[in-house]
Amino acid sequence: MEWTWRYHGADGAPVEARDVPAETFTSRGDAESWLGENWSELAEEGVGTVALLEDDREVYTMPLTGDED
């Protein structure tokens, strides 16, 4: 299994891989820990929402900011 993050801007459009890290992980826990350490930098680069993928299957999505009023 391979775990990766897919990034979307505030407008919902995909964020290009060249603009953000393209990390792969061997476990869900490693992927989530990495996001916990790097979410603020991703948000500064324009990422508004992330989706966790297990191979090609989307597990969940979540916003990187609390501005979901």
Rank of each mutant, 00 (worst) to 15 (best):
V50T: 11
G36A: 09
D30K: 11
W5R: 04
W34H: 06
A17G: 15
W3R: 01
G9C: 11
Y7L: 08
E41I: 04
V15D: 08
E54V: 04
G48Y: 02
R57P: 00
G66A: 12
G66S: 13
A13K: 13
V59P: 00
E45F: 03
G9D: 14
D69Y: 00
A10N: 07
D55G: 12
D69H: 00
E44P: 02
E58F: 01
R57E: 15
T4Q: 09
E68C: 05
P21R: 09
E44A: 15
S40D: 05
D56N: 12
R28W: 00
E2R: 13
G12S: 08
P21W: 08
D67Q: 02
V59W: 00
D11K: 11
W5I: 06
S40Y: 02
L42R: 07
L52S: 07
A51I: 03
G46E: 12
A13D: 10
R57S: 13
Y60M: 13
F25A: 02
Y7E: 09
G9L: 10
L52D: 06
L42Y: 07
L35H: 04
T24E: 13
E2N: 13
L64D: 04
G36C: 06
V15G: 08
W3G: 02
R57K: 11
V47S: 05
W39K: 14
G66R: 10
